[in-house]
Every structure is written in C-alpha cells, then in structure tokens.
Amino acid sequence: MINNRGIISHGNHNNFSNNAIGANAQASAPAPRHSAEPAIEADAPWDLGIVTILSEELRSVIDELKLHRHRNPNGLYFYQGEHTAPDATLRIVATQTQSQGQRSTMAALENLRRHYNPRLWALVGIAGGIHDAHARIGNVIVSTDVVYYESRKINPRGDTRRRGEHRQAPAQVVHAVNAYFTDHGTPARINSGNAAGTGDQYEIYPGVIGSGEAVIADRNSDIRSYLTTYHEKVLAVDMEAGGLSQYWQENSVDGIANPGWIVIRGVSDNADEEKGHSHHELAARNAAHVLSQLLPYLCHPARSAAGTA
C-alpha cells in the first residue's frame, strides 16, 4: 500500500487503472503479469534433452558429458553443456524427475520441452535385467522399443489378463542405433576402466524394455513371465520408459516436429530377491558412457545447426 497526497495511478502506457485522488489517497500496486514469451533457454536449438530418475544417474550424465548446473527463474534446476562430436557441437540439457514412475517422467519431459524444446529425448539410467544371458549386471540395454505392461483386466476369481502396449521410436532413431551396432558388433563390448571405475568389460545389447509401476524383486513374478511371453527380446524392466513413449505419442499431433526418443539402461540388478542398491553407480556410469558413444549416430550435423530440422 502506498500513501499519497494528491493523485496516484498505476497504469501502463495509455491504460490507467487503480487510481486514487485526494488526501491520504491509497492504491495497491497490481501484481506483475507473467510473460507469455518463450523462456530464455529456448532462444537457440538444443539437440538432446536427458531425463534421469536417481541422483546417481544424473551425476553420471553430468560427469560423462561435462554439464553445468543452471537454475532458471522458476526455480527449476537443469544441467547444461556442449559436447563435441566428430561432425558437430551438440547442445545438451539434463534434468532429474521429482520421483520414480511414469507420471513424474512425463512432467520432467514437459519442463524440458517448455524451456529447451530439444530435438531428441533420452531416458538414461538403471534397470532390472530379466534376461540371464544378455542382461547381466553392468551390461547396458539400448532400446527403441517399449512394452508398457500395466494395462490389464481383472476378472472374477482373480484371473488377471494383461494388455501390453508396444511403442517403437521414430525410424531415424532406429536407423541410428542399427548403425552403431553395425559398426561395433552385437553385442558391442566396452572396457569399463574409464566409464565405471573398474577394469571389467561390459556388453551393450539392443533390446526391448518392459515398463510399468511395479518394483520387481521376484524371479517368479507374473510380470516377468508375461513380458518374456509377450516379446522374447524384453531384456530389462524399468518404471519410466512407458511415460516417455506415451508423452511422445500424445505430442505427435501438434503439427510441429516431434523429438525422437531412446532409452539407455544399465543393468543394476536381476529383478529378483537379491535386488539392491550396490550396483547403481556401476550401471548408471556405464549407461552414461554408452550415451556419449551413441551421440555421433543420434545427433547429426544438420540437426545441430540453427534453424534446421
């Protein structure tokens, strides 16, 4: 409140409002209006937006890609940086969800879209392996296919029938992943000395990710049985990839370029009774390292030049 003798007016240009006249005239300054202009971060193209769930996952991405913390005017924290690939300098931003699960993932994607509008989404972190041969602890699954397993019908007498939803990434992302494995073999093999702090070698496989809301810690779980029956190449399970693929699908009707997407998951456990946290760091750092290896295939020079699609 402002005390004034005479006339007081809070207005804008030729618009006059909230006026008061006379002794001890009082008027309240109006609350500032929110700008409808794009956020300052969106003033130039961003090539890659990364979503992580756990702190270990975000730290691994920050260390691998040399990102720096940025707090925007709304109080949201992002981690930004540039990564030099053989043919381009890529602008990269990463964020962490508020919690596990599909819904929080979709909210994080929306924050990235509003403030950075990247041309590619990447979900990077850990998962539980459900394929004994390929998804050993420390291995990395690169996925352009997601099976969401939560949809189901519960009949009388406890008969549950699951209804899987299968989505595949856009064709250009699938081609990029295929090119990587053509060059490096299937499985690709990497010495983890620089990536995970050990001298062991780990393997990288293309495969399908099963995604839902359950934390699976039972080798005899009906979810594991359903997924391997639904698609024999489901190699691992997580709680977020379904949200990523759903967000992409629902934004494919806007009439503007819809980012591609990819899921990169390091195997931290075998989704069984021994599930724990002891291998989170190893799996997260391996996944972040594989992302850096995939960048030259996923982000081409034409995609990093300003004004190109």
Rank of each mutant, 00 (worst) to 15 (best):
I2V: 08
N3E: 12
I8F: 06
G11W: 13
S17V: 08
S17K: 05
A25P: 08
Q26N: 10
H34I: 15
S35W: 02
S35P: 12
A36P: 09
I40P: 10
E41T: 09
D43F: 05
D43Y: 08
D43T: 12
W46A: 07
L48H: 04
G49E: 03
I50S: 03
V51E: 10
V51Q: 05
T52R: 01
S55P: 06
L58M: 11
L58G: 08
D63Y: 06
D63S: 12
D63R: 06
H68D: 09
N74T: 07
Y77A: 11
Y77K: 03
F78S: 02
Y79D: 04
H83K: 02
T84A: 15
D87K: 06
A88L: 00
A88P: 07
T89P: 04
L90F: 08
R91Q: 11
I92D: 07
A94I: 07
T95K: 03
Q100E: 08
S104M: 15
T105R: 06
A107C: 06
A108Q: 03
A108W: 02
L109P: 10
L112N: 05
G128F: 12
D132G: 01
A133W: 00
H134D: 11
A135W: 00
A135R: 00
V142P: 03
S143N: 14
T144K: 00
V146C: 13
Y148T: 14
E150H: 13
K153M: 09
I154S: 11
N155Q: 13
R157A: 15
G158R: 11
G158A: 01
G164E: 06
E165V: 05
R167T: 09
R167K: 09
Q168D: 04
A169N: 05
A169R: 01
A169E: 08
Q172W: 09
V174I: 00
A176M: 12
V177Y: 04
N178K: 14
D183I: 03
H184S: 13
H184W: 01
T186W: 03
N191S: 05
A195M: 00
A196C: 10
G199M: 03
G199T: 09
D200P: 11
D200S: 15
Q201L: 09
E203P: 03
E203S: 07
Y205C: 00
G212V: 05
A214H: 13
D218W: 03
N220S: 15
N220I: 00
Y230P: 06
V234G: 05
V237Q: 02
D238G: 01
D238T: 07
E240G: 02
A241Y: 01
A241K: 04
A241C: 12
G243E: 00
G243D: 02
S245M: 10
Y247I: 06
E250L: 12
S252Q: 15
N258A: 13
P259W: 10
W261L: 01
I264C: 15
G266L: 13
G266T: 09
V267S: 05
V267Y: 08
V267L: 11
S268C: 14
E274Y: 12
K275H: 14
H279P: 03
L282C: 07
A283F: 04
A284R: 01
A284Q: 07
N286K: 07
A287R: 00
H289M: 07
H289K: 02
H289E: 06
V290K: 02
L291N: 10
L291H: 07
S292R: 15
S292A: 15
P296K: 09
P296V: 09
P296H: 02
P301S: 03
S304N: 09
T308A: 11
A309E: 04
